[in-house]
C-alpha cells in the first residue's frame, strides 16, 4: 500500500503535467514551467507566515496567487517593459525565488520549509500524511485537479486546438486567444503548485516538457499526441519508482532522469535509422 500511494501520486502529477505541458510545448511556452515552479516559493512562505501551519490549504492558495502574478508580470514586462521574453522570465523567476529564500532563512527560520525540498520534493512522505476518505491529502487534492484538467481539456479541446495551431483562423472565427491562453496558464499554474508540494520544482519542469517532446517526435496528430504524452509520463513514473527502489536512490530524480534518457535514446535511434535508410 505504501508504494501504491507513491506511484499513484506520481502518476496523477504525470498526467496533469504532461497534458497541460503538451499545449505549452506546442505553443513554445515550455519554459513557463520553469518560471512557475520557482516563482511560487514566496507565496508558499508568506501563506505559511500568515496561517502559521505547514501543508495548509492557504499555502497552496498563496503559491497559486504568486504563480499567476509571475505570469502576468512576465507578460507585462515583455510587452511594455522593453525586455525580451527570455530576459523577462529570467529576471522575474530568480527575483521571486530569491525573495522566497530570504524569507525562509530569516523570518520563517523555525518552519519546516526546507529549501532543498523545494527543489527535489519528497514523494516518499506522501503515504505518511493525514488522509481524507482514506486517500492521503496531496493525492486527494491532485485527483480533484486531474478531474478538472481532464474535463476542461475534453470540453475545450476545440478552443485549445484552434488557438494553439492557427491563431489567424481563431481570430476570424471570433475565438478569444487571450481567454484560452490564460485558461491554460491558470490551470498549469494551479497544477504546478499542487504537484510542486510532492515532487519539487525540477521534476515538474521535466514532466511538463519531456513527455510532450517525446510525443512530438512520434506523432503529429493532436489526440494521439496527448495520449502518447500521458502514457509516456505514467509509464516512466512506474518504471522510475521501481528502479529507484531497486538501486536505493531517490524516486523523484530517477523518474526525471529516466524520462530524459528514453527521449535521448529514441532520438539517437531515429537518427541512426534515418541514416541507415539514406544509405540503402
Amino acid at each position: 500500500m505504501f508504494d501504491f500511494w507513491i506511484i499513484l501520486t506520481a502518476c496523477i502529477i504525470a498526467i496533469n503535467s504532461s497534458l497541460l505541458g503538451s499545449f505549452l510545448v506546442l505553443r513554445k511556452m515550455s519554459l513557463i514551467g520553469d518560471a512557475l515552479s520557482h516563482s511560487v516559493l514566496p507565496g508558499i512562505v508568506i501563506a505559511f507566515l500568515i496561517s502559521g501551519e505547514i501543508n495548509s490549504f492557504w499555502m497552496l492558495i498563496g503559491a497559486s496567487v504568486f504563480g499567476v502574478f509571475a505570469i502576468l508580470i512576465i507578460d507585462w514586462l515583455n510587452r511594455f517593459g522593453g525586455f525580451g521574453k527570455d530576459s523577462a522570465i529570467g529576471i522575474i523567476y530568480t527575483l521571486l525565488f530569491a525573495i522566497g529564500i530570504i524569507l525562509i532563512t530569516s523570518i520563517a527560520k523555525n518552519s519546516d520549509i526546507d529549501v532543498d525540498c523545494v527543489l527535489f520534493g519528497d514523494i516518499n512522505t506522501v503515504p505518511l500524511l493525514p488522509k481524507i476518505l482514506a486517500i492521503p491529502v496531496p493525492t486527494f487534492n491532485l485527483l480533484i485537479i486531474a478531474v478538472v484538467v481532464i474535463l476542461t481539456l475534453l470540453l475545450g479541446l476545440k478552443g485549445f486546438k484552434i488557438s494553439t495551431f492557427d491563431k489567424n483562423h481563431a481570430q476570424t472565427l471570433g475565438v478569444s486567444i487571450t481567454f484560452w491562453n490564460y485558461l491554460l496558464l491558470g490551470l498549469a499554474s494551479v497544477s504546478t503548485v499542487f504537484s510542486f508540494d510532492s515532487v519539487g520544482a525540477i521534476m515538474v519542469i521535466g514532466l511538463i516538457v519531456i513527455p510532450p517532446s517525446f510525443a512530438n517526435i512520434i506523432t503529429r496528430k493532436l489526440s494521439r499526441f496527448l495520449i502518447i504524452s500521458a502514457s509516456f509520463a505514467v509509464s516512466s513514473c512506474i518504471l522510475g519508482h521501481c528502479i529507484a527502489i531497486y538501486l536505493d536512490i531517490p524516486t523523484v530524480p530517477t523518474i526525471g532522469f529516466l524520462m530524459g534518457l528514453i527521449l535521448i535514446l529514441t532520438l539517437i535511434f531515429q537518427t541512426f535509422n534515418k541514416n541507415l535508410q539514406q544509405h540503402t
Binding site: V25, N216, G256, G260, L261
Partner: peptide, 11 residues
C-alpha cells in the same frame, strides 16, 4: 529550442 533547454535542464 525552448523545449530542448527545459529537457536538458531537468535531465
Amino acid at each position: 529550442k525552448d523545449a530542448s533547454i527545459a529537457i536538458s535542464l531537468s535531465v
